[in-house]
Amino acid sequence: MSFFKKKAGVTVIVVAVIAALLTVITHFTGENPVSNAVRAVFAPFRSGIAAVSGAVSERINFIREAGAYKEQNEQLVNEIIELKKQNKETAVYREENERLNALLELKNSIQGYSTVAASVIGYSSNHWYDSIEINKGTLAGINTGNTVIAADGIVGIVTDAGPNWAVVNTVINPESATGIAVARTGDIGVIEGDAELCYDSLCKLTFVDKGANIIVGDILVTSGTGGIYPPGLNVGTIRDISADNMGTINYASVEPMVDFKNLHEVLVINGVQ
């Protein structure tokens, strides 16, 4: 026992001397040389282990969190679907808003006429666009003979009306005829629906003066004659001209300004203010 105690005593003395020496060195130099050396030796090992363990723990975390990632992925997919739906709805609302704004501008631009806004709810059964049905009728003040216009131009004339519905014969209907003027030259004429052209959503320009100067692309507007439509509303553009050898115009096919395929809201002119 005394042997161990002697050894322990020597050890304590040696350690105390080393520690005291290091304390003194640290006090005067501000640095512990042993500590610095140990840190320098272990630094590369610690860096290497940190890099390896970092990579390993990243993999392990990935595996551990795979379930959560899957769930999160499903949530995000659902969120994307919901956002797409919302986006689509927003686009529809924006488009509707633009259309209604255009209609409102049109309504404001027609001074002196009373108007009723209505929505298109149906198309003709024999041909898609030669007549349409709207959701307002006699209860809203709409009657047979009222003219119907849209933001792009004229649509047609109300031919039948119920309490909450009305049928409108469009300008391409073979039974319709409207007085027009060529916007560029002021030449007047009549556009009529045509049984053949109707299928291409076109109508024809007739009763044009012999010396009239019309070219493909000319824009036609309502002349206001006959008191059916207010003057100056867009009707269509000349698409094709048919003339005889002498240059006399037989007729010209006209493409209506209104796109009947995408017609949603219309304005019915039901009287004069």
């Binding site: 322990a8 050890t11 350690v15 520690a19 512990n32 500590s35 140990v38 272990f42």
Partner: peptide
């Protein structure tokens, strides 16, 4: 003691002495 005192941010001298004396004491 030397390594722990150097790398663990505690009092180097104390840890060094304490660890060595502890080892000697436990051995004894």
């Amino acid at each position: 003691g030397m390594l722990a005192g150097s790398l663990l941010g505690r009092s180097f001298s104390f840890i060094f002495i304490f660890y060595t004396i502890s080892a000697a004491a436990v051995y004894t």
